[in-house]
Design a protein around this nucleic acid. Structure first.
Length: 371
DNA sequence: TCTGGGGTCCTAGGACCC
DNA sequence: TCTGGGGTCCTAGGACCC
């Protein structure tokens, strides 16, 4: 989906179309309706706090304002940009709508988060361009939103191509076009090559995907390890055999919070304790709602210098109540240094055990056994 | 003007077992 | 006396993605 959160907001505020708009922040107030019926919006320059950009419109991106950037920094680049608070319930609703619209045409869908999917179109005889147009029309009819599509032989190339003609684009690529159309792109366009790998590649004199493809695989082994080096070599040649994964179970559920100001374990004990318990209760609530117990409870702290540590503990049996989680997380907390001030606290439940599996009748379990 | 929140996957060392 | 080769589980950290 194109600039998904911002585009959903523009459905409510059509007068902002064409403007630099940013979604994000905390305690950002909703637009105020004036006496004349017009709406007064918050501006980026008025923001104070630790929030980041969640999504920016293409007009805001032209100022250099992108997802993940601190709002204070963004304000220096685009002080007049409109700032809207995030409304995740609405985004989840539109997410369900666009996915249902696609599923009505092609049901083999892999969920890649709130605004992205892979679709297996292998069995469609229809030509790619008309298929892409049909999917885009279905998405627009269901949401009023535009998306960008890449149709290619595999997921790796589809991900790259979906980004080549944003917004509202269609890119179709055959395997024999990898050299001409993919090799000129920077290596970081590959899903899985992030900031660290990009930096390391650059130090080795490798910037484009083509340069990566031309690098002897032995050289990649030496610098990135056997597994990672082999993977880099394959993806640079446009090779990706991964199937579409249409169903999956969650591996972990977590909640975390960055404080408005850094807190100290002693001076701010009561406040921290309340936040900590609150996080445990939210995790418990999430577990209950989704129907899981957890065998591994973990915590995360981020100190004022931004350095983060984690601790976890594995229990003999799965737990799910707030009190149990609070107790296990409390044990983890004892093993962490608390001299420095803290800016973030998180609680995580891993080792998830589906509760419906526990409630499964014995006969049903036996039916799955080979004998 | 310092950097959100929710995830997944990988690595690596140590404990422990056969 | 100086020592194997598998394997799994647990823990911590880090890269990366949406």
């Amino acid at each position: 989906m194109d600039a998904f959160f911002a585009s959903v907001e523009l459905l409510d505020y059509p007068e902002l179309r064409g403007q630099a708009v940013v979604v994000g922040g905390r305690n950002v107030h909703l637009p105020q309706v004036q006496a004349d019926g017009s709406r007064r919006f918050a501006r980026l320059r008025d923001y104070v706090g630790r929030g980041v950009v969640t999504t920016s419109t293409y007009e805001a991106r032209a100022f250099g304002v992108f997802s993940g950037m601190g709002l204070m920094k963004s304000a220096a680049l685009a002080p007049e940009a409109i700032l809207l608070p995030a409304n995740f319930d609405a985004y989840r609703d539109y997410s369900r709508r666009f996915k249902a619209a696609v599923a009505s045409i092609a049901p083999q869908i892999e969920d890649r988060g709130i605004d992205e999917i892979y679709i297996d179109l292998s069995d469609f005889a229809e030509d790619s361009l008309s298929l892409a147009r049909r999917i885009k029309q279905a998405v627009f009819a269901a949401t009023g939103l535009s998306c960008s599509i890449g149709i290619t032989p595999n997921k790796l190339l589809a991900k790259i191509c979906s980004d080549l003609d944003k917004p509202d684009g269609i890119t179709i690529l055959r395997q024999d076009e990898v050299a001409s159309r993919i090799w000129p792109l920077p290596a970081k366009k590959i899903n899985g090559i992030g900031p660290k790998a990009t930096e390391k590649l650059a130090r080795l004199g490798i910037r484009s995907i083509g340069e990566l493809a031309a690098t002897p695989v032995d050289f990649l082994f030496r610098h990135f390890g056997q597994s990672n080096g082999a993977w880099m070599h394959r993806v640079a040649h446009g090779i990706d055999e991964r199937a579409i994964v249409t169903a999956s179970e969650p591996k972990s559920i977590s909640r975390e919070s960055t404080f408005a100001r850094d807190l100290h374990a002693r001076q701010d004990r009561a406040e921290l304790s309340e936040i900590f318990t609150g996080l445990c209760l939210r995790v418990a609530d999430d577990l209950k709602r989704k129907g899981y117990a957890s065998r591994t409870i973990g915590i995360k702290l981020r100190y004022s210098d931004f350095h983060a540590v984690t601790r976890d503990i594995t229990l003999p049996v799965g737990i799910s109540t707030g009190a149990e989680i609070r107790k296990a997380a409390g044990e983890c907390l004892k093993r962490v240094p608390l001299a420095q001030k803290i800016r973030l606290l998180g609680v995580r439940a891993g080792g998830l055990v589906p509760l419906n599996a526990l409630l499964q009748p014995v006969a049903a379990v036996q039916a799955e056994l080979p004998f």
